[in-house]
Design a protein around this nucleic acid. Sequence first.
DNA 1: TATTGTTATACTCTATAACTATA
DNA 2: TATAGTTATAGAGTATAACAATA
Lengths: 144, 144
Amino acid sequence: MAPTTTERSPASEAWSLLADLVAGQRGRMMCVCSDLELAPGQLMALKWLDPDTPAPMGDLAHALSCDNSNVTGIIDRLEERGLVQRRPATHDRRVKMLVVTPRGRELRRRIKARMEEPPEPLLRLDEGEQRALRDLLRKALDGG
Amino acid sequence: MAPTTTERSPASEAWSLLADLVAGQRGRMMCVCSDLELAPGQLMALKWLDPDTPAPMGDLAHALSCDNSNVTGIIDRLEERGLVQRRPATHDRRVKMLVVTPRGRELRRRIKARMEEPPEPLLRLDEGEQRALRDLLRKALDGG
DNA sequence: TATTGTTATACTCTATAACTATA
DNA sequence: TATAGTTATAGAGTATAACAATA
């Protein structure tokens, strides 16, 4: 029998480390939810919505990797609090466009400010390493 | 008025990119859950448990950033399926140790194999870049 | 016929509070 | 008194299926 220590590709190990880093910040995300009185799905939805570009409900469902029927409930709660509004689409009357209200825009700004604070492990890297990490991730995600 | 484009530190931008990369893989994680017939919390719990080292329920609650009462339900379902077992701790009879069964160990192996597959954005980097990314993350997470 | 969003239903996750057993 | 885990309860996320309005 071969030993259980299998060869791991750099990409696979990088991915695991990266997922662990994000998972380790889950508690912090829940704190943001709690402080701003938003359930996790509501926070993700408001964070994803672009205040300058209304989006159909279906696009949000796709971004959140969940079903349309779920988005109905999430938006119900955000709309009750006056953070977003449903508006009929002009081009297709089946579609409802989601618009972020001024109040939603302000809350979204606070969400982003809190979520963008880098976690402690990244702050342990020196400035050059932080830039190198940023550049590698930019390159990976740029679609090039 | 200053323009809205604020200066962003490399660490903050790296963190956002990194979080986006993980968030973009949520759909894949849900697929693993669906394929293996595990709810997300059950998957995370089984993935966290070390088959070689029984752990108290409370430690799992801490790792999952959730309440003890929640872990009770998650473990109930895993135990019903014969994937883990509760065992009284010898040193403190209030504590229950979680033991992964052989069947749980096999399912856990499949979870990890699926979850460790690197996502497409990382595969676009060349081998040297993948190694550089891995090394930066190792350094950040090593606690050094 | 196919699609967008809603409703109804059921299961799971989540926290809070009250509880049991133990320390 | 304090702690580990359970139970009861309630709010929220999740998918499936059936539905209405529209394309």
